Simulated scan of single mutants.
Amino acid sequence: MQHLIDIGVNLLDKQFQNDRSEVIERALQNGVVQMIVTGTSLRNSKQGLEIAKEYPNVLFSTAGIHPHDAKTFTNNTIDELEQLAQYDEVVAIGECGLDFNRMFSPQDIQEECFEAHLHLARKLSMPLFLHERDAHNRFCEIFANFMDMTEKSVVHCFTGNKEQVKKYVSMGFYIGITGWICDERRGQALQDAVKYIPLDRLLIETDAPYLLPRNMENRPKNRRNEPSFLPHIVNEIAKFMGVKPEVVAKHATENTRKLFNLPEPSLDI
């Protein structure tokens, strides 16, 4: 299979603190040649940048505040994120967006934080790494004022239905698909929805250590997802899109390089 790129890995999660280097090596051995470390808070984004620096041309990072952490947002936050974004390793603004599922941060604060990220990405002409859960309509309403940014943005870890994905595609977004598609219980709507994602708007990710594919053989007993499992997710996406895995891999890799302006991987990988 062609080289793969995992656009969303939470490598700073405590589940990886004891064997992060081994996790990265297993990914490389399984054809996942580049990974983007997700920044979910200011502190987390700074740490992600430092880890990315340790693996040049393999790891990259994002800089942003997850909606769960929007309550930590201050007037200085955007200035600090802008400083982080000056580094070559930082390839997107985010993870940012709206999450009305658990409401760990109040809606008005989430929306203020989200719009500040959108303005920053526009100012810097950078891609956006987006989060949306149970907030589809409001998310689209806010983006109505940022339609120039949709084609430089990915709705990461999409788990919605075909009507929602059709709306996102019509607006111009890239769509990130995870191992949620491997869940025969909760993933049925997504299994149907991927048929409506054009190949030139598809991106792939594990969201590791979360969302371990349920139908994977020899699943780890610790139930931890890893970027090395991305080929399994590609196979499932291909099955429900009605194409060969090589087609999914080719387009997702090309799309990722285009969106995040990633260099080609080192020849010795």
Rank of each mutant, 00 (worst) to 15 (best):
L12H: 05
L12M: 14
L12G: 02
D13L: 07
K14G: 12
Q15I: 12
Q15E: 15
F16E: 07
F16M: 06
N18C: 09
D19G: 07
D19W: 10
D19L: 14
D19I: 13
S21G: 08
E22F: 09
V23P: 12
V23C: 13
I24F: 13
I24P: 03
E25S: 07
R26A: 08
R26Q: 15
R26G: 02
Q29T: 05
Q29H: 05
N30A: 14
V32T: 11
Q34R: 03
M35D: 09
I36R: 01
V37A: 10
V37M: 14
V37T: 13
G39N: 08
G39Y: 09
G39M: 02
T40Y: 02
T40D: 07
T40S: 10
S41T: 02
S41D: 07
S41G: 02
S41V: 07
L42I: 04
L42C: 01
R43Y: 12
N44R: 01
S45K: 00
S45D: 00
S45M: 00
K46E: 15
K46P: 03
K46T: 03
K46C: 11
Q47V: 02
G48E: 00
L49V: 00
L49R: 01
I51M: 04
A52W: 01
A52K: 08
A52V: 11
K53S: 04
K53V: 09
K53A: 12
K53R: 09
K53I: 11
E54S: 12
L59Y: 05
L59Q: 01
F60V: 04
F60I: 02
F60H: 07
F60Y: 13
F60S: 00
S61T: 13
S61K: 03
K71R: 03
F73P: 00
T74Y: 09
T74Q: 04
N76E: 14
N76W: 13
N76S: 13
T77Q: 11
D79T: 09
D79H: 15
D79M: 07
D79L: 10
L81T: 00
L81N: 01
